[in-house]
Amino acid sequence: MKQSEKRGWKVTAVATLCLFNVLFFTGSDAFSASVDLKDFDHQGKKIYDTYDETPQLYMSADSGDRNLAVYYQRRQYPGSPPPIPHEVDLTFSGNETDCLSCHERGGYSQEFGKFIPVTPHPEKTLCYQCHAQVTTTEKFVETNWKSIAPPRLGRSFLGSSPPPIPHALQMRENCISCHTGPGAVVEIRVDHSARGNCRQCHVPAPQTTLMQEFVRKP
């Protein structure tokens, strides 16, 4: 039965989407000690503020060098602070303007010939607290580390509805920084950045708890 199924692929994209949808459930008793997310949405105003401050020209600029695969490859798990992928001064002295001079507002870097990704949390200025240098790619010993797959794209609940926000907003409350502008990863860059109120349509739905249906109290 060699090459059992193929041909008939004139469509642009076919995937075994049904298999993709197998959700993974962890033991539900683990939730007794889990933390509730009531503070989850407290940073909403920031989004509007940054939107107001970001020039239209910048948001609609079109270029992209990194892509989503690279974006996730740099992280140990979705949401972990990425190491610094370029060389930094040996002293890496912690002068806050060193990193933020580029990564606060983004733009084109002559030095690297690339558009600069923008940090969603420029108010945190001790950058090297979380972002490590890379001076070797050798491991000390091999590791059995595994993490989860990054959130899939296009997870709309209905055929054409706006997809929900698949990641936690902690440290990433600022949609503009990662989802618009030429520094943004092309797959997650929005084509309607002129509409500023992101969460008018996109609701936070990080996959940390099971979906609970609304039940009216009797």
Binding site: V22, L23, A33, S34, K146, I148, P151, T209
Partner: peptide, 15 residues
């Protein structure tokens, strides 16, 4: 493959 197979990313968080 660095990621857990057959896993769409459902995580439980504990302090």
């Amino acid at each position: 493959w660095q990621n857990l197979s057959n896993n769409s990313g459902l995580i439980s968080w504990q302090k």
